[in-house]
Simulated assay, not measured.
Amino acid sequence: MTSEITLFVNPTAGRGRGAHAAQPAASALRAAGFSVRTVLGENAGDALTRARAAVADGTGALIAVGGDGMAHLALQAVAGTRTPLGLVAVGTGNDFARALGLPVRDPAAAGRRIADALKGGELHDVDLGQVGDRWFGTVLASGFDSRVNDRGNRMRWPTGRFRYDLAMIAELAAFRPFPYRIRLDDGEVQEIEATLVAVGNGSSYGGGMRICPGADLTDGLFDITVVGDCGRATLLRVFPSVYRGTHVDHPKVTVHRAAKVEISAAGITGYADGEPLGPLPLTARCVPGAVRVAGL
């Protein structure tokens, strides 16, 4: 493996933590003997073009510095290649790094872990989800949670996570279950009323909400969590248990496992790794060993 590696940096991640995190991560990598170059980009599209060029030119690894959004962007450059992906997780959510057992908000420790993994050959192939030509590492969200995302993204004030707390309150006021059509693998189409359907390659989203607690990045299958047609009061009771993953024990929650899932519901946007994919219907496939990661 070449000793030249690429830092793929989001300077705005975590309210500026991305820019500050690049230096200690780069220092740790250089101390281990690597030559480090940095890719920023003028915007997401430009950054991805530059990251793909680095991969095509044979960089030894692509190291994403930022949050889940930056990890998601990096996946579009390395998925399906043998170029290792490293994560220096300094964003708001950092769920993909958590799923991989990597340091969170400690860029120097993350840099050291990545360096040790690259030098020691501790590289592991993990699964990814794919929707069309888009790859994702954690969870494809649809339903109440994605409606909260929609509303939060439209809001100009306040900033940060409090915006999504307010968006959740607003969505609860207008809450109702949604009619879904779901097909798992090549089975029959199921028509159900559901609050949300979450397709988990990883176990969590939203900064540690373990919506698919049993998801395994190496089993070639999604965990699909369906929260049924519960009312507002039930949703409020069940919601806090998502952080522990115990919501799956509630009678209104069912979990399925499948390598492919088709989901359809009117007026619902799908989000993967917190990034919008587009309106349903969407078909997601679990692709075994689609990305090589450093430091699992």
Rank of each mutant, 00 (worst) to 15 (best):
G93I: 06
G93T: 13
G93E: 11
N94V: 09
D95Y: 00
F96H: 14
A97W: 08
R98I: 10
A99H: 11
G101N: 13
P103C: 05
V104N: 11
P107D: 03
P107C: 06
A108H: 14
A110F: 10
A110G: 12
G111P: 11
A115V: 03
L118K: 07
K119S: 14
K119Q: 13
E122V: 09
H124T: 15
D127H: 11
L128E: 03
G129D: 01
V131F: 00
T138Q: 10
V139F: 02
V139E: 00
G143A: 00
V148N: 02
N149R: 08
G152C: 05
G152D: 01
G152F: 00
R156L: 06
P158L: 00
T159V: 11
R161T: 13
R163K: 15
D165G: 12
L166Y: 12
L166D: 03
L166Q: 07
A170F: 10
E171W: 04
L172A: 11
A173W: 12
A174S: 14
P177E: 04
P177F: 04
P179T: 11
D185W: 10
V189H: 09
E191N: 13
E191V: 12
A194G: 07
T195K: 10
A198H: 09
V199H: 04
G202M: 01
S203G: 10
S204M: 06
S204Q: 12
G207F: 05
G207I: 06
M209W: 09
R210M: 11
A215V: 08
D219A: 05
D219R: 12
